[in-house]
Design a protein around this nucleic acid. Structure first.
Length: 473
RNA sequence: GGGACGGUAGCUCAGUAGGUAGAGCACGAGCCUUUUAAGCUUGUGGUCGCGGGUUCGAGCCCCGCCCGUCUCACCA
Protein backbone atom coordinates (compact mmCIF):
# COMPACT_ATOMS: atom_id res chain seq x y z
CA UNK A 1 0.00 0.00 0.00
CA UNK A 2 2.85 2.39 0.85
CA UNK A 3 4.41 1.60 -2.48
CA UNK A 4 1.17 2.45 -4.24
CA UNK A 5 0.85 5.73 -2.35
CA UNK A 6 4.44 6.57 -3.20
CA UNK A 7 3.60 5.96 -6.83
CA UNK A 8 0.80 8.51 -6.60
CA UNK A 9 -2.19 6.19 -6.24
CA UNK A 10 -4.87 7.04 -3.73
CA UNK A 11 -5.76 3.81 -1.92
CA UNK A 12 -9.38 4.90 -1.62
CA UNK A 13 -10.70 6.71 -4.63
CA UNK A 14 -13.84 8.66 -5.35
CA UNK A 15 -16.79 8.15 -7.63
CA UNK A 16 -15.85 6.61 -10.97
CA UNK A 17 -18.02 7.32 -13.98
CA UNK A 18 -18.83 4.07 -15.78
CA UNK A 19 -20.20 3.38 -19.22
CA UNK A 20 -22.45 0.92 -17.39
CA UNK A 21 -22.43 -2.11 -15.16
CA UNK A 22 -20.47 -5.13 -16.30
CA UNK A 23 -23.73 -6.78 -17.36
CA UNK A 24 -24.67 -3.63 -19.34
CA UNK A 25 -21.31 -3.66 -21.07
CA UNK A 26 -21.60 -7.34 -21.91
CA UNK A 27 -25.09 -6.77 -23.28
CA UNK A 28 -23.86 -3.93 -25.51
CA UNK A 29 -20.62 -5.66 -26.45
CA UNK A 30 -19.05 -4.55 -29.71
CA UNK A 31 -15.44 -5.04 -30.67
CA UNK A 32 -13.44 -1.82 -30.62
CA UNK A 33 -15.91 0.01 -28.39
CA UNK A 34 -14.36 2.29 -25.74
CA UNK A 35 -15.72 1.72 -22.26
CA UNK A 36 -15.21 2.68 -18.64
CA UNK A 37 -15.90 -0.08 -16.14
CA UNK A 38 -15.24 -0.80 -12.50
CA UNK A 39 -15.28 -3.71 -10.12
CA UNK A 40 -13.42 -5.86 -7.67
CA UNK A 41 -10.44 -7.87 -8.92
CA UNK A 42 -11.33 -11.52 -8.32
CA UNK A 43 -8.70 -13.30 -10.39
CA UNK A 44 -5.32 -12.42 -11.87
CA UNK A 45 -3.22 -14.34 -14.37
CA UNK A 46 0.13 -12.71 -14.93
CA UNK A 47 2.14 -13.57 -18.05
CA UNK A 48 5.20 -11.40 -18.04
CA UNK A 49 4.52 -8.34 -20.11
CA UNK A 50 0.76 -8.84 -20.09
CA UNK A 51 -1.82 -9.67 -17.45
CA UNK A 52 -5.34 -11.08 -17.56
CA UNK A 53 -7.67 -10.35 -14.67
CA UNK A 54 -11.36 -10.58 -13.90
CA UNK A 55 -13.41 -7.75 -12.49
CA UNK A 56 -16.64 -8.47 -10.66
CA UNK A 57 -19.45 -6.11 -9.78
CA UNK A 58 -22.99 -6.72 -8.54
CA UNK A 59 -24.13 -7.82 -11.98
CA UNK A 60 -21.43 -9.83 -13.72
CA UNK A 61 -17.76 -10.73 -14.10
CA UNK A 62 -15.67 -9.37 -16.95
CA UNK A 63 -12.16 -10.07 -18.14
CA UNK A 64 -9.66 -7.27 -18.59
CA UNK A 65 -6.34 -7.47 -20.40
CA UNK A 66 -3.39 -5.33 -19.37
CA UNK A 67 -0.40 -4.94 -21.69
CA UNK A 68 2.87 -3.34 -20.77
CA UNK A 69 3.37 -1.48 -24.03
CA UNK A 70 -0.22 -0.21 -24.08
CA UNK A 71 -0.08 1.07 -20.53
CA UNK A 72 3.55 2.16 -20.17
CA UNK A 73 6.23 1.14 -17.73
CA UNK A 74 5.06 2.75 -14.51
CA UNK A 75 1.27 2.12 -14.66
CA UNK A 76 1.98 -1.48 -15.61
CA UNK A 77 4.35 -1.95 -12.66
CA UNK A 78 1.77 -0.38 -10.35
CA UNK A 79 -0.92 -2.72 -11.67
CA UNK A 80 1.28 -5.67 -10.75
CA UNK A 81 1.25 -4.48 -7.15
CA UNK A 82 -2.55 -4.78 -6.96
CA UNK A 83 -4.06 -7.66 -5.03
CA UNK A 84 -7.07 -9.85 -5.55
CA UNK A 85 -9.85 -8.06 -3.69
CA UNK A 86 -8.96 -4.51 -4.72
CA UNK A 87 -11.52 -2.34 -6.50
CA UNK A 88 -10.34 -0.60 -9.64
CA UNK A 89 -11.83 1.44 -12.45
CA UNK A 90 -10.51 1.03 -15.97
CA UNK A 91 -10.81 2.73 -19.36
CA UNK A 92 -10.33 0.46 -22.28
CA UNK A 93 -11.38 -1.02 -25.56
CA UNK A 94 -13.50 -4.14 -26.01
CA UNK A 95 -12.14 -7.14 -27.91
CA UNK A 96 -12.46 -10.90 -28.08
CA UNK A 97 -9.56 -13.13 -27.04
CA UNK A 98 -8.14 -16.04 -28.93
CA UNK A 99 -10.22 -18.36 -26.77
CA UNK A 100 -13.36 -16.39 -27.51
CA UNK A 101 -13.88 -14.53 -24.25
CA UNK A 102 -15.24 -11.01 -24.36
CA UNK A 103 -12.64 -8.79 -22.74
CA UNK A 104 -11.46 -5.21 -22.38
CA UNK A 105 -7.94 -4.06 -23.21
CA UNK A 106 -6.98 -1.55 -20.54
CA UNK A 107 -5.61 1.88 -21.56
CA UNK A 108 -5.80 3.48 -18.12
CA UNK A 109 -6.77 2.31 -14.68
CA UNK A 110 -7.16 3.77 -11.21
CA UNK A 111 -7.39 2.29 -7.75
CA UNK A 112 -10.83 2.79 -6.18
CA UNK A 113 -10.44 0.84 -2.95
CA UNK A 114 -7.64 -1.28 -1.53
CA UNK A 115 -8.45 -4.56 0.19
CA UNK A 116 -6.30 -5.19 3.25
CA UNK A 117 -7.37 -8.81 3.71
CA UNK A 118 -6.92 -11.71 1.33
CA UNK A 119 -10.14 -13.05 -0.15
CA UNK A 120 -11.30 -16.64 0.37
CA UNK A 121 -9.89 -19.18 -2.01
CA UNK A 122 -11.11 -18.94 -5.57
CA UNK A 123 -11.75 -22.57 -6.37
CA UNK A 124 -13.38 -24.02 -3.27
CA UNK A 125 -14.95 -20.76 -2.20
CA UNK A 126 -15.82 -20.19 1.42
CA UNK A 127 -17.00 -23.46 2.97
CA UNK A 128 -16.95 -22.77 6.69
CA UNK A 129 -20.64 -22.23 7.43
CA UNK A 130 -19.91 -20.29 10.56
CA UNK A 131 -17.86 -17.69 8.71
CA UNK A 132 -20.40 -17.67 5.88
CA UNK A 133 -23.13 -16.58 8.29
CA UNK A 134 -21.10 -14.31 10.54
CA UNK A 135 -19.32 -12.52 7.69
CA UNK A 136 -21.89 -12.77 4.93
CA UNK A 137 -20.05 -10.20 2.79
CA UNK A 138 -17.28 -12.77 2.26
CA UNK A 139 -19.82 -15.46 1.44
CA UNK A 140 -21.39 -13.18 -1.16
CA UNK A 141 -18.03 -12.45 -2.77
CA UNK A 142 -16.80 -16.03 -2.78
CA UNK A 143 -19.99 -17.99 -3.51
CA UNK A 144 -21.97 -16.49 -6.38
CA UNK A 145 -24.94 -18.86 -5.92
CA UNK A 146 -25.64 -17.31 -2.54
CA UNK A 147 -26.45 -14.07 -4.28
CA UNK A 148 -29.11 -15.85 -6.35
CA UNK A 149 -31.00 -16.86 -3.23
CA UNK A 150 -31.07 -13.32 -1.92
CA UNK A 151 -31.97 -11.89 -5.29
CA UNK A 152 -34.93 -14.30 -5.31
CA UNK A 153 -35.88 -13.11 -1.85
CA UNK A 154 -35.71 -9.49 -2.92
CA UNK A 155 -37.88 -10.13 -5.95
CA UNK A 156 -40.37 -12.07 -3.84
CA UNK A 157 -40.88 -9.11 -1.48
CA UNK A 158 -41.39 -6.82 -4.42
CA UNK A 159 -43.75 -9.27 -6.14
CA UNK A 160 -45.91 -9.71 -3.06
CA UNK A 161 -46.38 -5.96 -2.76
CA UNK A 162 -47.29 -5.58 -6.42
CA UNK A 163 -49.64 -8.57 -6.27
CA UNK A 164 -51.54 -7.31 -3.26
CA UNK A 165 -51.63 -3.67 -4.31
CA UNK A 166 -53.05 -4.71 -7.68
CA UNK A 167 -55.90 -6.39 -5.79
CA UNK A 168 -56.70 -3.39 -3.67
CA UNK A 169 -54.84 -4.25 -0.46
CA UNK A 170 -53.24 -1.40 1.45
CA UNK A 171 -49.82 -1.89 2.96
CA UNK A 172 -49.71 -0.48 6.48
CA UNK A 173 -47.17 -0.22 9.26
CA UNK A 174 -48.05 -0.87 12.87
CA UNK A 175 -45.91 -0.62 16.01
CA UNK A 176 -43.01 -2.95 16.55
CA UNK A 177 -42.43 -1.52 20.02
CA UNK A 178 -45.46 -2.36 22.09
CA UNK A 179 -46.43 -2.06 25.74
CA UNK A 180 -48.15 -5.43 25.43
CA UNK A 181 -47.07 -8.14 23.01
CA UNK A 182 -50.25 -9.75 21.71
CA UNK A 183 -51.64 -11.54 18.70
CA UNK A 184 -49.90 -14.87 19.27
CA UNK A 185 -48.73 -17.13 22.03
CA UNK A 186 -44.99 -16.62 22.31
CA UNK A 187 -42.44 -15.15 24.67
CA UNK A 188 -41.53 -11.60 23.64
CA UNK A 189 -38.25 -9.72 23.88
CA UNK A 190 -38.41 -7.11 26.58
CA UNK A 191 -36.70 -3.74 26.54
CA UNK A 192 -36.96 -0.49 28.43
CA UNK A 193 -38.14 2.92 27.32
CA UNK A 194 -36.17 5.53 29.28
CA UNK A 195 -38.38 8.54 28.53
CA UNK A 196 -41.48 6.88 29.91
CA UNK A 197 -39.67 4.75 32.45
CA UNK A 198 -41.57 1.64 31.44
CA UNK A 199 -41.09 -1.82 30.04
CA UNK A 200 -41.69 -2.27 26.31
CA UNK A 201 -41.91 -5.39 24.19
CA UNK A 202 -40.94 -6.20 20.61
CA UNK A 203 -43.98 -7.41 18.75
CA UNK A 204 -44.62 -11.12 18.32
CA UNK A 205 -47.33 -10.49 15.69
CA UNK A 206 -49.09 -7.47 14.14
CA UNK A 207 -52.48 -9.17 14.26
CA UNK A 208 -54.28 -7.06 16.87
CA UNK A 209 -53.33 -3.75 15.26
CA UNK A 210 -54.39 -4.94 11.82
CA UNK A 211 -57.78 -6.00 13.16
CA UNK A 212 -58.16 -2.55 14.70
CA UNK A 213 -57.71 -1.21 11.20
CA UNK A 214 -60.58 -3.44 9.99
CA UNK A 215 -62.67 -1.79 12.70
CA UNK A 216 -61.43 1.56 11.43
CA UNK A 217 -62.72 0.89 7.95
CA UNK A 218 -59.83 -0.64 6.04
CA UNK A 219 -61.33 -3.53 4.06
CA UNK A 220 -58.13 -5.06 2.76
CA UNK A 221 -54.85 -4.55 4.57
CA UNK A 222 -51.51 -6.24 4.83
CA UNK A 223 -48.29 -5.73 6.67
CA UNK A 224 -44.96 -7.33 5.88
CA UNK A 225 -42.27 -6.94 8.47
CA UNK A 226 -40.24 -8.33 11.31
CA UNK A 227 -41.68 -10.19 14.26
CA UNK A 228 -39.57 -11.13 17.27
CA UNK A 229 -39.93 -14.20 19.42
CA UNK A 230 -37.78 -15.02 22.39
CA UNK A 231 -37.25 -18.67 21.52
CA UNK A 232 -34.56 -21.08 20.46
CA UNK A 233 -32.67 -21.24 17.19
CA UNK A 234 -32.85 -24.07 14.73
CA UNK A 235 -33.09 -24.86 11.05
CA UNK A 236 -36.52 -23.25 10.75
CA UNK A 237 -36.52 -20.68 13.56
CA UNK A 238 -34.71 -17.38 13.93
CA UNK A 239 -35.61 -15.00 16.79
CA UNK A 240 -36.44 -12.26 14.31
CA UNK A 241 -38.24 -13.28 11.17
CA UNK A 242 -40.31 -11.71 8.44
CA UNK A 243 -44.04 -12.30 8.41
CA UNK A 244 -46.76 -11.24 6.02
CA UNK A 245 -50.22 -10.85 7.52
CA UNK A 246 -53.26 -10.16 5.37
CA UNK A 247 -56.80 -9.33 6.47
CA UNK A 248 -59.84 -8.98 4.30
CA UNK A 249 -63.22 -7.74 5.50
CA UNK A 250 -66.31 -9.67 4.40
CA UNK A 251 -64.12 -12.66 3.57
CA UNK A 252 -63.46 -15.92 5.39
CA UNK A 253 -61.08 -18.84 5.40
CA UNK A 254 -62.01 -19.77 1.83
CA UNK A 255 -61.21 -16.27 0.58
CA UNK A 256 -57.81 -16.65 2.14
CA UNK A 257 -57.22 -20.09 0.65
CA UNK A 258 -57.88 -18.80 -2.84
CA UNK A 259 -55.68 -15.76 -2.21
CA UNK A 260 -52.68 -17.61 -0.85
CA UNK A 261 -52.89 -20.27 -3.55
CA UNK A 262 -52.80 -17.63 -6.25
CA UNK A 263 -50.18 -15.54 -4.47
CA UNK A 264 -47.69 -18.34 -3.95
CA UNK A 265 -48.17 -20.09 -7.27
CA UNK A 266 -47.81 -16.88 -9.26
CA UNK A 267 -44.82 -15.87 -7.13
CA UNK A 268 -43.17 -19.16 -8.06
CA UNK A 269 -43.91 -18.56 -11.73
CA UNK A 270 -42.53 -15.02 -11.54
CA UNK A 271 -39.41 -15.77 -9.52
CA UNK A 272 -38.50 -19.32 -10.49
CA UNK A 273 -40.10 -19.33 -13.92
CA UNK A 274 -41.91 -22.54 -13.01
CA UNK A 275 -44.32 -23.93 -10.46
CA UNK A 276 -42.05 -26.93 -9.90
CA UNK A 277 -39.69 -25.64 -7.26
CA UNK A 278 -36.84 -27.06 -5.20
CA UNK A 279 -33.33 -28.31 -5.76
CA UNK A 280 -32.49 -30.96 -8.31
CA UNK A 281 -31.50 -33.57 -5.76
CA UNK A 282 -34.79 -33.51 -3.90
CA UNK A 283 -38.40 -34.18 -4.85
CA UNK A 284 -39.76 -31.03 -6.42
CA UNK A 285 -42.72 -29.21 -4.94
CA UNK A 286 -45.48 -28.67 -7.46
CA UNK A 287 -47.27 -25.41 -6.71
CA UNK A 288 -49.68 -25.61 -9.64
CA UNK A 289 -53.23 -24.88 -8.38
CA UNK A 290 -55.58 -26.18 -7.26
CA UNK A 291 -53.94 -27.55 -4.16
CA UNK A 292 -55.25 -30.47 -2.18
CA UNK A 293 -57.80 -29.60 0.49
CA UNK A 294 -58.40 -32.16 3.22
CA UNK A 295 -59.96 -31.93 6.63
CA UNK A 296 -57.95 -32.76 9.69
CA UNK A 297 -60.30 -35.61 10.53
CA UNK A 298 -60.16 -37.18 7.08
CA UNK A 299 -56.40 -36.94 7.09
CA UNK A 300 -56.17 -38.78 10.40
CA UNK A 301 -58.61 -41.43 9.23
CA UNK A 302 -56.62 -41.88 6.06
CA UNK A 303 -53.42 -42.60 8.02
CA UNK A 304 -54.71 -44.29 11.15
CA UNK A 305 -57.89 -46.06 10.09
CA UNK A 306 -61.42 -45.02 9.14
CA UNK A 307 -62.77 -45.96 12.55
CA UNK A 308 -60.18 -43.89 14.42
CA UNK A 309 -62.68 -41.54 16.02
CA UNK A 310 -64.90 -44.43 17.13
CA UNK A 311 -62.11 -46.31 18.86
CA UNK A 312 -61.86 -46.08 22.65
CA UNK A 313 -59.08 -43.91 24.02
CA UNK A 314 -57.07 -46.92 25.25
CA UNK A 315 -57.04 -48.33 21.73
CA UNK A 316 -55.72 -45.16 20.10
CA UNK A 317 -53.04 -44.79 22.79
CA UNK A 318 -51.95 -48.34 22.06
CA UNK A 319 -51.89 -47.65 18.34
CA UNK A 320 -49.77 -44.55 18.90
CA UNK A 321 -47.27 -46.44 21.03
CA UNK A 322 -47.00 -49.06 18.33
CA UNK A 323 -45.87 -46.20 16.04
CA UNK A 324 -43.13 -45.37 18.60
CA UNK A 325 -44.89 -42.25 19.87
CA UNK A 326 -44.48 -41.24 23.50
CA UNK A 327 -48.06 -41.44 24.79
CA UNK A 328 -48.74 -41.17 28.55
CA UNK A 329 -51.93 -42.66 29.99
CA UNK A 330 -53.23 -39.17 30.78
CA UNK A 331 -53.56 -38.21 27.11
CA UNK A 332 -57.07 -37.64 25.85
CA UNK A 333 -58.30 -38.98 22.53
CA UNK A 334 -57.91 -35.54 20.98
CA UNK A 335 -54.36 -35.19 22.28
CA UNK A 336 -53.35 -38.57 20.88
CA UNK A 337 -54.91 -37.58 17.58
CA UNK A 338 -52.89 -34.41 17.47
CA UNK A 339 -49.71 -36.22 18.41
CA UNK A 340 -50.33 -38.57 15.50
CA UNK A 341 -50.96 -35.65 13.16
CA UNK A 342 -47.93 -33.70 14.38
CA UNK A 343 -45.38 -36.49 14.47
CA UNK A 344 -46.53 -38.88 11.76
CA UNK A 345 -48.79 -37.18 9.24
CA UNK A 346 -47.57 -33.62 8.76
CA UNK A 347 -44.12 -34.67 7.58
CA UNK A 348 -45.66 -36.79 4.82
CA UNK A 349 -47.42 -33.79 3.25
CA UNK A 350 -44.70 -32.79 0.80
CA UNK A 351 -46.93 -31.26 -1.87
CA UNK A 352 -48.99 -28.17 -0.91
CA UNK A 353 -51.96 -29.22 1.18
CA UNK A 354 -54.61 -27.21 2.98
CA UNK A 355 -55.49 -28.98 6.22
CA UNK A 356 -58.88 -27.62 7.28
CA UNK A 357 -61.36 -27.79 10.16
CA UNK A 358 -58.95 -28.16 13.07
CA UNK A 359 -60.13 -28.98 16.61
CA UNK A 360 -61.12 -25.80 18.42
CA UNK A 361 -58.75 -26.38 21.33
CA UNK A 362 -55.77 -26.14 19.00
CA UNK A 363 -56.66 -22.71 17.63
CA UNK A 364 -58.34 -20.56 20.28
CA UNK A 365 -58.60 -17.36 18.22
CA UNK A 366 -60.61 -18.48 15.19
CA UNK A 367 -64.29 -18.76 14.53
CA UNK A 368 -66.01 -22.10 15.07
CA UNK A 369 -67.42 -24.06 12.13
CA UNK A 370 -71.15 -23.52 11.79
CA UNK A 371 -71.93 -27.22 11.39
CA UNK A 372 -69.64 -28.43 14.18
CA UNK A 373 -68.70 -26.15 17.08
CA UNK A 374 -65.92 -28.50 18.17
CA UNK A 375 -64.01 -27.47 15.05
CA UNK A 376 -62.74 -24.09 13.93
CA UNK A 377 -62.91 -22.60 10.48
CA UNK A 378 -59.21 -22.45 9.67
CA UNK A 379 -56.61 -23.89 7.37
CA UNK A 380 -53.00 -24.78 7.81
CA UNK A 381 -51.07 -24.79 4.59
CA UNK A 382 -48.46 -27.54 4.76
CA UNK A 383 -45.66 -27.73 2.20
CA UNK A 384 -42.59 -29.95 2.28
CA UNK A 385 -43.81 -31.52 5.50
CA UNK A 386 -43.87 -28.27 7.40
CA UNK A 387 -46.50 -25.69 8.24
CA UNK A 388 -46.07 -22.65 6.03
CA UNK A 389 -49.11 -20.54 6.55
CA UNK A 390 -52.18 -20.52 8.77
CA UNK A 391 -55.45 -18.86 7.71
CA UNK A 392 -58.59 -18.12 9.68
CA UNK A 393 -62.11 -16.98 9.61
CA UNK A 394 -61.47 -14.31 12.21
CA UNK A 395 -63.36 -14.18 15.44
CA UNK A 396 -65.33 -10.93 15.56
CA UNK A 397 -67.60 -11.59 18.53
CA UNK A 398 -66.17 -9.30 21.25
CA UNK A 399 -67.70 -11.28 24.11
CA UNK A 400 -66.41 -14.63 22.87
CA UNK A 401 -63.05 -13.02 22.14
CA UNK A 402 -62.83 -11.53 25.63
CA UNK A 403 -63.67 -14.88 27.21
CA UNK A 404 -61.00 -16.67 25.22
CA UNK A 405 -58.33 -14.03 25.83
CA UNK A 406 -59.11 -14.00 29.54
CA UNK A 407 -58.69 -17.73 29.63
CA UNK A 408 -55.42 -17.41 27.80
CA UNK A 409 -54.19 -14.65 30.14
CA UNK A 410 -54.97 -16.99 33.04
CA UNK A 411 -56.26 -14.29 35.36
CA UNK A 412 -53.45 -11.80 34.69
CA UNK A 413 -55.48 -8.72 33.67
CA UNK A 414 -52.32 -6.81 32.74
CA UNK A 415 -51.90 -9.14 29.77
CA UNK A 416 -55.30 -8.24 28.29
CA UNK A 417 -55.26 -5.81 25.41
CA UNK A 418 -58.29 -3.79 26.49
CA UNK A 419 -58.09 -1.43 23.55
CA UNK A 420 -58.28 -4.35 21.13
CA UNK A 421 -61.35 -5.71 22.88
CA UNK A 422 -62.93 -2.25 22.94
CA UNK A 423 -62.29 -1.93 19.21
CA UNK A 424 -64.12 -5.22 18.59
CA UNK A 425 -67.03 -3.87 20.63
CA UNK A 426 -67.42 -1.11 18.05
CA UNK A 427 -67.92 -3.86 15.49
CA UNK A 428 -65.40 -5.62 13.28
CA UNK A 429 -66.75 -6.89 9.98
CA UNK A 430 -66.53 -10.64 9.40
CA UNK A 431 -63.09 -11.22 7.92
CA UNK A 432 -60.58 -13.71 6.70
CA UNK A 433 -56.98 -13.44 7.77
CA UNK A 434 -53.72 -15.22 7.24
CA UNK A 435 -50.03 -15.08 7.93
CA UNK A 436 -47.14 -16.31 5.84
CA UNK A 437 -43.63 -16.85 7.11
CA UNK A 438 -41.69 -15.14 4.36
CA UNK A 439 -38.43 -16.82 5.29
CA UNK A 440 -40.01 -20.23 4.99
CA UNK A 441 -41.61 -19.30 1.70
CA UNK A 442 -38.20 -18.30 0.37
CA UNK A 443 -36.89 -21.68 1.55
CA UNK A 444 -39.56 -23.46 -0.45
CA UNK A 445 -39.00 -21.39 -3.59
CA UNK A 446 -35.22 -21.77 -3.47
CA UNK A 447 -35.10 -25.30 -2.06
CA UNK A 448 -32.91 -24.21 0.86
CA UNK A 449 -33.10 -26.40 3.96
CA UNK A 450 -32.06 -23.89 6.60
CA UNK A 451 -33.62 -20.56 7.48
CA UNK A 452 -30.07 -19.28 7.88
CA UNK A 453 -29.48 -19.72 4.19
CA UNK A 454 -32.32 -17.32 3.34
CA UNK A 455 -31.47 -14.62 5.89
CA UNK A 456 -28.54 -12.35 5.09
CA UNK A 457 -27.47 -12.01 8.70
CA UNK A 458 -28.91 -14.85 10.78
CA UNK A 459 -28.67 -14.66 14.56
CA UNK A 460 -25.50 -16.25 15.89
CA UNK A 461 -24.16 -16.69 19.38
CA UNK A 462 -21.71 -14.03 20.50
CA UNK A 463 -18.23 -15.44 20.56
CA UNK A 464 -16.78 -13.05 23.14
CA UNK A 465 -18.02 -13.25 26.74
CA UNK A 466 -21.28 -11.37 26.96
CA UNK A 467 -20.76 -7.91 28.46
CA UNK A 468 -23.92 -7.93 30.56
CA UNK A 469 -23.76 -11.55 31.59
CA UNK A 470 -25.44 -12.14 34.91
CA UNK A 471 -24.27 -15.06 37.02
CA UNK A 472 -27.63 -16.80 37.08
CA UNK A 473 -27.68 -20.57 36.68
C1' G B 1 -31.08 -29.03 27.66
C1' G B 2 -29.45 -34.47 25.65
C1' G B 3 -26.73 -37.17 21.75
C1' A B 4 -23.41 -37.56 17.32
C1' C B 5 -19.77 -35.04 14.50
C1' G B 6 -16.44 -31.01 13.71
C1' G B 7 -12.76 -26.47 14.93
C1' U B 8 -4.86 -27.20 12.23
C1' A B 9 -1.77 -20.81 7.95
C1' G B 10 -6.20 -15.36 5.41
C1' C B 11 -9.13 -19.61 2.50
C1' U B 12 -9.63 -25.23 1.17
C1' C B 13 -7.66 -29.32 3.54
C1' A B 14 -3.82 -33.42 5.06
C1' G B 15 -1.32 -34.77 9.56
C1' U B 16 1.11 -41.91 10.22
C1' A B 17 2.26 -45.34 16.17
C1' G B 18 2.34 -39.78 21.06
C1' G B 19 8.58 -37.78 18.68
C1' U B 20 11.11 -30.80 14.84
C1' A B 21 3.86 -28.39 11.84
C1' G B 22 2.48 -29.94 5.93
C1' A B 23 0.21 -29.12 0.73
C1' G B 24 -2.70 -26.14 -2.73
C1' C B 25 -4.70 -21.22 -3.24
C1' A B 26 -3.63 -16.20 -1.56
C1' C B 27 0.77 -12.91 -0.45
C1' G B 28 6.45 -11.48 -1.62
C1' A B 29 10.77 -12.14 -5.27
C1' G B 30 12.24 -14.01 -10.33
C1' C B 31 10.84 -15.89 -15.67
C1' C B 32 6.96 -15.72 -19.36
C1' U B 33 2.74 -10.37 -24.45
C1' U B 34 -4.19 -14.06 -25.72
C1' U B 35 -4.46 -16.48 -20.29
C1' U B 36 -8.73 -18.42 -17.74
C1' A B 37 -8.25 -23.40 -11.29
C1' A B 38 -2.40 -20.36 -16.54
C1' G B 39 2.56 -22.45 -15.88
C1' C B 40 7.80 -22.76 -13.86
C1' U B 41 11.60 -21.34 -9.79
C1' U B 42 11.66 -19.55 -4.85
C1' G B 43 10.31 -17.32 -0.20
C1' U B 44 7.08 -15.50 3.93
C1' G B 45 3.12 -17.14 6.82
C1' G B 46 0.79 -21.27 12.84
C1' U B 47 -2.39 -19.22 20.18
C1' C B 48 -3.17 -26.73 16.08
C1' G B 49 -10.81 -23.24 19.33
C1' C B 50 -9.76 -22.06 25.00
C1' G B 51 -8.11 -23.98 29.86
C1' G B 52 -6.26 -27.89 32.73
C1' G B 53 -4.24 -33.05 33.15
C1' U B 54 -1.27 -37.67 31.78
C1' U B 55 3.74 -38.16 29.60
C1' C B 56 10.78 -37.42 29.03
C1' G B 57 7.67 -35.52 24.99
C1' A B 58 0.57 -33.94 23.12
C1' G B 59 -2.35 -31.37 16.89
C1' C B 60 -3.05 -36.69 18.39
C1' C B 61 -4.68 -39.60 24.89
C1' C B 62 -7.96 -37.82 29.45
C1' C B 63 -11.20 -33.85 31.92
C1' G B 64 -13.76 -29.10 31.71
C1' C B 65 -15.39 -25.02 28.73
C1' C B 66 -16.45 -22.06 24.00
C1' C B 67 -18.28 -21.98 18.91
C1' G B 68 -20.60 -24.51 14.81
C1' U B 69 -23.39 -28.49 11.99
C1' C B 70 -26.88 -32.37 12.34
C1' U B 71 -30.40 -34.62 15.52
C1' C B 72 -33.85 -35.26 19.70
C1' A B 73 -36.43 -32.42 23.33
C1' C B 74 -38.63 -27.69 24.60
C1' C B 75 -41.26 -23.93 22.07
C1' A B 76 -45.77 -22.79 18.02
Amino acid sequence: MEALKAAGHRPYGRAFERTGSLADIRAAFAEGLSVRMAGRIVAVREMGKSIFAHLQDGTDKFQIYVQKNTLGEEPFAAFRRLDIGDFIGVCGELFVTRTGEQSAKVHRWELLAKSLHPLPEKWHGLQDVEIRYRRRYLDLIANPDVRKVFNARSRLLSFIRRFLEARGYYEVETPVLQTLAGGAIATPFQTHYNALGQAMYMRIAPELYLKKLLVGGYDKVFEMGKNFRNEGLDRSHNPEFTALEIYEAYGDVKTMMRLVEELISSAAQEICGTMLVGKEEQEKVNLTPPWRVVSYHDLVKEHAGADWFERPVEAVREWGRAQKLDIPDTMTHAQVTHEVYDKLIEKTLWQPTFVTRLPAELVPLAKRCEDDPSLVDVFELVVRGRELCPGYTELNDPLDQRARLEEQAAGDASKLDEDFLRALEYGMPPAGGMGIGIDRLVMILTGEESIRDVMLFPQMKTREPKPDETPEE
